[in-house]
Design a protein around this nucleic acid. Structure first.
Length: 815
RNA sequence: GCCGGGAUGGCGGAAUCGGCAGACGCACCGGACUCAAAAUCCGGCGCCCGCAAGGGCAUGGGGGUUCGACUCCCCCUCCCGGCACCA
């Protein structure tokens, strides 16, 4: 027997697998059920790290397990190759992003291959490839043609360092997600996708997703649907009718003031009517110069009176109007009614500005008095001082009040969302150019589909200067109008990378197709994805956008399903002593050197055994050597078993049972992704196998157990099992085609079990009985137990609980 | 503040249905082999009392349901993640 030498066998089998085309998905119907296993494609911004090693091991194990169960598996790979990091790296190194990106892709591909990844390489794609982004542009045109892509002047989140606009999702705590620079507001004409039209469907269709609560909650929070009412107030001095959104129409009688957001479009004319123009302009100017971050961080209750009054439609009462930065233009209608008694922000504002606090919801029992309130009262109570609704319990009354508002013609039921439209333009050069042409005569003209792709020029000055670098490339910018033939200019912004990744899973089904973005038949065959895995960091952005795009494509008749990923698995991160692995901390662990030292199988095994897949793996606590040692034991045991020179012996039956029990348990562990537990059960089987070999067991049973072990382990450790399967055990075909083993249910059950004898719920004795022992037999055996009798002492057995054949509980009472 | 998820030996973790808590591994301790070491193999290993037999305690804390609770219910503490001036 040779020593277990992964360095030799691993590259050998990787080359053979490639030659045999083992991992190609089959398009033709060959009778096997199809399984689409997708993992989030990587960003080629450097080498693969341990996070990839864990995540892709999971994906590979699931794919191989399905293959071995006889399925036709699609397990593709590609690269999310556009985006800021490539461009930033290119600027820093003075290189064009493309060669830099290509080099990283090549390096990552090499690592994936050396890691034993079972990918269908023939479907490899890169979003930065014109053959791909041509169809990203086609997707944009689809949305554009159907009114779902539009341009508007909007206050954008502008990062002064990256010199670009950011999506709301890329602003974290008022700072740029990538570089941490405080984001400022800037008015720019931007392209948007109308995702808000889909808010309800994005929420409601979540019911059919088998995703973790964590992700579903994040999406729900992000969309932020709240039900309430829209009520219109009239400005006494000007007659303007201003709608407000409220979730608490039951507090309408408690309105004592009215507030506008500083960006509200009617502010200037209202201030003029109230004679407060100077003060209002002052506060607007100040806010314009303030960083978004500072504005969000100061929970100030500042504000200035507008000098005009709003008329409360439910009571006819006039209340003073203010402008205050705590009211946001982006949410609701940009104006709110002030109910200080029952809203904490309004309460603080009223105290600051000496406004009346009027209680209109009284709790049962206690008397809430405005004079000694220290905070707003936001709990259940009964409506008071509320005209026709006095005495009605709140918040149950919301529905009734809303209906009343509708009858009176003052308001209506309304729903408000936190979600805003998706800003997709980027003032950057490393992305798909937006396929629009601006013609002085015809206006905004979409590039005809036949002219796609709008190719990204190779000679671009990448230094960011506040507009897209493409704008400085005259050959790119100047075109003839496709409509009238006159001189025109191209749009120079590019699309957000999340547009690229919102449809890549469709492209994999027909990655080489140059006639259409995907073949409808192929998509019908493979989609929706059966199993999607990836990092939790994409819980909101990528997953929400992909769901949105799929719904749009469904509506346009391009797809026949409404959710792309029914089952989602989010693996944990790899950390070190509780902290993230990062270059700045100098604790980066790279997979390739580890693979070269220990072998890919050992590393895959290590990552899977360290923790449940959803949990973080702390690299400081793993034992690579321990896993390697176990593979060595497997190697030796299988070699010995294959020699088959054992005589029959007492260990035969025990081993047979262990093998069948392990088969059943490991199968169920694979089904629920409990790979750490599956491995522990395979370790037990290895120990049993070794013990049986030493104790003397029938050769055929030993060999069967060894084969089962090899097959069960194959998804996790593909190289060593392939070597053992084909070379040591002498099979002609790959272990991938070995078929998943079945088990004899009778053998998984022991014929003798340990009967637990409890007295008053405490274990007092353990007695071996036949598994078929019935209730009477168990009771008799338990009552005969010396130890149980001792524990009963001079009390008497009042009741016996019998759960044959596992447990008897003797319940006693004093004699 | 709101929403979601957690808490089990020195460590990672197991316990699929309410029925032997701590599988499996790491670390540690002891032993075999060896001139020695490495490798390998064998044994021990929740805490406390006890020479032992044995007993007690124990799944973040408190209460409840049950013959029986890591598991179900209520309350609390702490930790992780998300959202957060969202009207």
């Amino acid at each position: 027997m040779d020593r277990y030498n992964p360095e030799e066998i691993e590259p050998k089998w990787e080359a053979i697998w490639e030659k045999e085309g083992l991992f190609r998905a089959v398009e033709e119907d060959d009778g096997r059920p199809r399984f689409y296993k997708l993992h989030m494609f990587p960003y080629p911004s450097g080498d693969l790290h341990m996070g990839h090693a864990e995540a892709f091991a999971i994906s590979d194990i699931i794919a191989r397990y399905r293959w071995m169960q006889g399925m036709n598996v699609l397990h593709p790979i590609g690269w999310d190759a556009f985006g800021l990091p490539a461009e930033n790296a290119a600027i820093k190194r003075g290189l064009h992003p493309r060669p830099w990106t290509d080099r990283n892709i090549a390096e990552q591909e090499r690592t994936f291959r050396r890691y034993g990844m079972a990918f269908d390489w023939s479907r490899k794609l890169s979003t930065a490839d014109p053959d791909y982004y041509r169809w990203t542009q086609w997707l944009f045109l689809q949305l554009h043609a159907n009114g779902l892509a539009y341009r508007k002047l909007a206050p954008a989140n502008w990062c002064p360092k990256d010199q670009t606009v950011l999506a709301n999702e890329q602003v974290v705590q008022g700072r740029c997600e990538r570089c941490g620079t405080p984001v400022v507001r800037r008015d720019l004409t931007q392209w948007f996708f109308k995702i808000t039209d889909y808010a309800d469907r994005l929420l409601d269709d979540m019911a059919q997703l088998d995703w973790s609560d964590r992700v579903l909650t994040q999406q729900r929070n992000w969309i932020g649907r709240s039900y309430g009412a829209e009520v219109t107030f009239e400005i006494e001095e000007t007659g303007d009718r201003i709608p407000v959104f409220t979730t608490r129409p039951d507090t309408l009688w408690g309105v004592t003031f009215f507030v506008f957001a500083p960006e509200h479009p009617l502010l200037a004319s209202l201030a003029e009517a109230g004679g407060t123009s100077a003060a209002v302009r002052d506060i607007q100017d100040r806010l314009q110069r303030t960083h978004v971050s500072e504005r969000e961080e100061t929970l100030s209750r500042e504000g200035v009176p507008l000098g005009v009054h709003a008329v409360n439609p439910v009571s006819g009462e006039r209340v003073p109007c203010f402008v205050a930065p705590y009211v946001l233009m982006e949410y609701g209608t940009g104006a709110v009614m002030g109910v200080p008694a029952h809203d904490q922000r309004d309460f603080e504002f009223a105290r600051e500005h000496g406004l009346e606090v009027r209680v209109v919801i009284q709790p049962q029992g206690v008397q809430v008095d405005p004079d000694d309130m220290s905070e707003a009262f936001a709990h259940e109570g009964v409506m008071v001082n509320s005209g026709p609704f006095d005495g009605t319990p709140s918040p149950a009354s919301i529905q009734a009040v809303t209906e009343w508002l509708e009858r009176e013609g003052i308001g209506r039921a309304a729903t408000s969302y936190r979600l805003r439209d998706w800003l997709v333009s980027r003032q950057r050069a490393w992305g798909p150019p937006i396929p629009i042409i601006y013609c002085p005569t015809c206006g905004e003209v979409p590039v005809p589909e036949a002219d796609l792709p709008v190719v990204l020029p190779d000679d671009v000055d990448f230094s960011p200067q506040g507009e897209s670098p493409l704008a400085r490339n005259e050959a790119f910018v100047n075109v003839t109008c496709p409509s009238c033939g006159g001189p025109a200019k191209r749009e120079t912004d590019t699309l957000d990378t999340f547009v690229d990744s919102s449809w890549y899973f469709l492209r994999y089904t027909s990655a080489q197709d140059d006639e259409e973005p995907w073949s409808p038949e192929a998509v019908r065959r493979w989609l929706p994805v059966d199993m999607y895995s990836g990092g939790i960091e994409h819980a909101i952005l990528h997953l929400l956008y992909a769901r949105f795009i799929v719904k749009v494509l469904f509506d346009l008749g391009h797809l026949e399903f409404i959710e792309p990923f029914h089952k989602l698995l989010n693996q944990g991160m790899v950390i070190y002593r509780g902290a993230a692995l990062s270059k700045s901390k100098g604790n980066v662990v790279e997979p390739l050197p580890l693979i070269e030292t220990w072998g890919a199988d050992t590393i895959r095994l290590t990552m899977m055994f360290a923790a449940p897949v959803e949990d973080d793996v702390d690299w400081a606590t793993v034992s690579v050597a321990g896993m390697h040692k176990w593979l060595g034991r497997v190697w030796r045991a299988v070699h010995t078993a294959a020699k088959g020179a054992n005589a029959d012996g007492s260990a035969t039956e025990r081993l047979g049972r262990a093998a069948h029990r392990a088969t059943k348990a490991v199968t169920s562990d694979y089904e629920r992704f409990g790979f750490n537990v599956a491995i522990s059960k395979m370790m037990v089987l290895t120990n049993e196998l070794q013990r049986a070999i030493e104790g003397g067991a029938a050769a055929d049973v030993v060999r069967d157990a060894a084969e089962r072990l090899v097959v069960l382990l194959a998804p996790i450790a593909p190289h060593i099992t392939e070597e053992l399967w084909r070379e040591t055990l002498g099979h002609a075909e790959s272990v991938l085609h070995a078929g998943w083993p079945s088990w004899d249910e009778a053998l998984t059950r022991e014929d003798e079990v340990t009967l637990i004898v409890q007295v008053d719920g405490r274990v007092r004795d353990r007695i071996t009985v036949r598994a078929s022992a019935g209730e009477e037999e168990c009771r008799t055996v338990a009552l005969a137990s010396e130890r149980a009798r001792a524990a009963v002492g001079d009390r008497v057995v009042a009741e016996t609980i019998v759960r044959p054949p596992k447990l008897v509980n003797l319940v006693t009472r004093s004699a």
